[in-house]
């Protein structure tokens, strides 16, 4: 009787049969999800200067992109911003996560709550705040201000991701290292950090992708030259519509898809389960 119920429960996920409507709906949903992206990529190879009539395969828009010094310097700027923001936010975010996970004092709890606020604050608010802050300090807007703003935003992300990993890790291992004569710092360096390293790598790749693609914060905090790629594209879009933008967009898509795939794969290669997919879906 009991086993009956259990098999029933286990089979439960498929027992009611696949509702055809739901499956068809999901397929259509996925299709529509990809249509705009596929179209952007497709028309980046258009030999005509049209976004509705495909005139044949050509790489002219990519050649134009790779010979456009202004766009290339924007690309370099975006890569630099993402790289620096990634490094800084991984360090600061991990410190925050460690402290929050291991300390239950009042300041730690308050910081923990405060660190969550940027995640639920619309980017435009963070952008306006950063802009006024830098203006108030008399700082000239430049890549430095973009980087500072992006770090602030990314620390929260990293802290949440790393905390998730830490909470599933028993601190008895740390205790054991301490009993074996490690100083607290040694225990951290030799035991904790290596254990959470896959999560750190996944988080780093995720942050790189998010910052590289970010538009709103960059828009509010960037100076004139060089502008991050997303800000450059935005001003181009407002002036003209051309497959050249598609070519730049395709390159950006390539960077993010590559990074996200890596963040999914790397932790698995290192023999750990926690890829960024689990981090995102909370599974």
């Amino acid at each position: 009787m009991a086993t009956d119920a259990m098999t029933q429960a286990r089979r439960g996920r498929s027992v009611e049969g696949k509702p055809k409507f739901a499956v068809a709906f999901t397929a259509l949903f996925m299709f529509i999800l990809y249509v705009p992206i596929v179209v952007v990529v497709l028309f980046s190879f258009n030999s005509k200067k049209s976004l509705s009539v495909f005139g044949g395969f050509s790489t002219r828009w990519y050649q134009q992109f790779f010979h456009d010094e202004a766009l290339l310097s924007s690309l370099r700027a975006s890569l630099l911003i993402a790289f620096v923001a990634m490094l800084a936010s991984i360090v600061l975010g991990t410190m925050l996560a460690l402290a929050l996970e291991r300390v239950s004092s009042r300041p730690a709890r308050i910081t923990g709550t405060v660190a969550l606020i940027p995640l639920v604050t619309p980017e435009i608010v963070t952008g306006v705040a950063a802009l006024l802050f830098f203006a108030g300090l008399g700082m000239k807007l430049s890549l430095v201000t973009v980087i500072l703003a992006e770090i602030t935003f990314s620390i929260s992300y990293v802290a949440v991701i790393v905390r998730g990993r830490l909470s599933s890790m028993s601190d008895e291992v740390e205790e054991a290292a301490r009993d074996l004569g490690c100083t607290p710092f040694q225990a951290l360096r030799l035991v904790t950090i290596p254990t959470i390293l896959p999560a750190l790598i996944a988080a780093g790749l995720l942050i790189f992708a998010l910052v590289f693609d970010d538009f709103v914060l960059a828009f509010f905090t960037t100076g004139v030259d060089p502008q991050p790629l997303s800000v450059r594209i935005y001003s181009e879009i407002r002036m003209t519509i051309s497959p050249a933008i598609n070519a730049v967009g395709t390159c950006m898509l390539l960077v993010s898809v590559l990074l996200i795939s890596l963040s999914l794969i790397v932790p698995r290669l290192l023999g750990r389960k926690d890829s960024s997919l689990d981090l995102i879906s909370g599974g």
């Binding site: 705009p36 992206i37 976004l51 992708a209 693609d213 997303s230 594209i233 967009g249 993010s256 996200i260």
Partner: peptide, 19 residues
């Protein structure tokens, strides 16, 4: 399902505007 959402938000909005 998740992968398209890592494409830049700006590019995705641009994609719809051209479509």
């Amino acid at each position: 399902l998740v992968i398209p959402f890592f494409a830049s938000y700006l590019i995705r909005m641009y994609a719809w505007s051209t479509l």
